[in-house]
């Protein structure tokens, strides 16, 4: 099973809520996609309240990552293959 910690990631928002992450992506990125909970990305399964909004900024994806004790983080990770998969999934 994959682990986000093994990737090179940037934390845009931390200890936040799913709603704040959704609003941030919609307000700051012109290109974004909506997926359902359980969508697989970077070998992890996205947790959240649908629609989960994932932003695209060049070759980077911006998406929420939730842990039970620490809330939701908004992460930015280089992911050309993930962007391609997002576009195909729409």
């Amino acid at each position: 099973m994959g682990c986000i910690e093994e990737t090179k990631y940037e934390v845009i928002l931390k200890n936040t809520t799913f709603k704040e992450c959704r609003d941030y992506v919609r307000n700051n990125f012109s290109e974004f996609y909506q997926v359902n909970p359980g969508y697989r990305m970077f070998d992890v399964y996205i947790i959240g309240v649908p629609p989960i909004t994932i932003g695209v900024d060049g070759d980077y994806v911006i998406f929420p990552y939730t842990k039970p004790c620490y809330g939701t983080f908004l992460l930015r990770i280089h992911g050309v293959d993930e962007i391609e998969a997002l576009k195909k999934a729409q």
Partner: peptide, 15 residues
């Protein structure tokens, strides 16, 4: 009992 719990609940509803 936290915001994350709502995310897990919605995820379970979905999957």
């Amino acid at each position: 009992h936290k915001d994350a719990g709502i995310s897990y609940l919605a995820t379970m509803h979905s999957i």
